[in-house]
């Protein structure tokens, strides 16, 4: 072609990939690393905690009902003498799993619908009307009906706990994607008129690769934000369902369930609401930090500052 040409000397640096850059920037983000540490700590606690801390969450210590925190019961006991610490550790497993999996489901659905509606004009009307329809549905009654209908079938298929877990995760996932879809659609509508998308079209990049290469990386920020909010929302929804008696079985602790069970004893043993509440808040906060760090790391204009 021109002067410099065949046998060009090696470029000093190899082609950097987006993800290696993101990782480097993420490592430098203090809040994000703090979030990762807290989140990992919580995950480790709920995964290995019940094994290390030998007390059975269902064990009833009749002589120590409504006990304040002590060495034997670090977070005290409830009104029938079960150890709260053991219950928080055990309940975290389900709550975190429900939160994260339901968030992932709603994120995938919301992003998919948002991108399709924003990018393909023909799909915009139908998909957004469907979103409106879902938004207009009264959520709780719908969940109740769905659980009533499908609980027994799933219980037979997957066992009582796995069955209800799948049902709850799926239901929360498909009833919480609408906000994400709307935000993503709005951003995609603006992005697809940008000249770099036009440039990609003039190059001949097919639509699916335009979406993957140009649209999705640029809508990551709102997706991240709705992801962090989604985890909190899923944990809370799960606890509401448990409270209504339609979630997990009553003797199966989750953070939300512990909160609701504890609220009547708030004046007697405040620790009963304090600890599960703290666990939920810390989880959500750490995920928020991680999301924040990811968003900053994914934006080259902020990266490296």
């Amino acid at each position: 072609m021109s002067d410099a040409s065949v046998g060009a000397p090696q470029i000093d640096a190899p082609q950097r990939s987006l993800w290696s850059d993101v990782w480097v920037a993420f490592r430098r983000h203090r809040g994000a690393m703090l979030g990762v540490v807290i989140f990992t700590a919580i995950v480790l606690c709920v995964v290995f905690g019940p094994m290390v801390y030998g007390t059975d969450p269902q064990f009833i210590d009749v002589r120590a009902r409504n006990a304040p925190p002590s060495l034997v019961h670090p977070m005290g006991t409830d009104n029938i003498g079960r150890d709260i610490f053991a219950q928080v550790l055990q309940g975290g497993r389900v709550s975190m799993l429900v939160g994260v999996v339901a968030m992932l489901i709603s994120l995938v659905i919301g992003t998919l619908i948002g991108v399709l509606a924003g990018y393909f004009r023909r799909l915009d009307g139908p998909l957004m009307r469907m979103t409106d329809l879902f938004l207009a549905l009264p959520l709780l009654p719908l969940l109740l009906v769905a659980i009533m209908l499908f609980r027994d079938t799933l219980r037979v298929l997957f066992g009582p706990e796995a069955g209800i877990f799948l049902l709850i995760v799926f239901l929360i996932g498909i009833t919480s994607w609408m906000q994400t879809a709307r935000i993503v659609r709005g951003d995609v509508l603006a992005l697809k008129e940008r000249e770099f998308v036009l440039a990609a079209k003039s190059i001949g990049t097919p639509s699916r690769r335009i979406i993957l290469r140009h649209i999705l990386p640029n809508v990551l920020s709102p997706i991240m934000v709705s992801a962090t909010i989604g985890v909190a929302g899923a944990i809370i929804t799960e606890s509401a369902l448990s409270f209504l008696g339609l979630g997990f079985p009553p003797d199966f602790p989750t953070w939300g369930r512990l909160l609701y069970d504890g609220k009547d004893f708030m004046t007697l043993t405040p620790a009963r609401v304090l600890w599960p509440g703290l666990a939920i808040s810390l989880t959500v906060l750490s995920i928020n930090f991680v999301g924040d760090g990811l968003r900053d790391a994914l934006d080259p204009r902020i990266r490296g500052r």
């Binding site: 000249e195 770099f196 036009l198 990609a200 003039s202 994914l298 934006d299 080259p300």
Partner: peptide
């Protein structure tokens, strides 16, 4: 091929 007016907008910032 095409060369665009706004060089800022015609390059994907990411």
């Amino acid at each position: 091929q095409m060369i665009f007016q706004d060089p800022q907008a015609s390059l994907n910032p990411r």
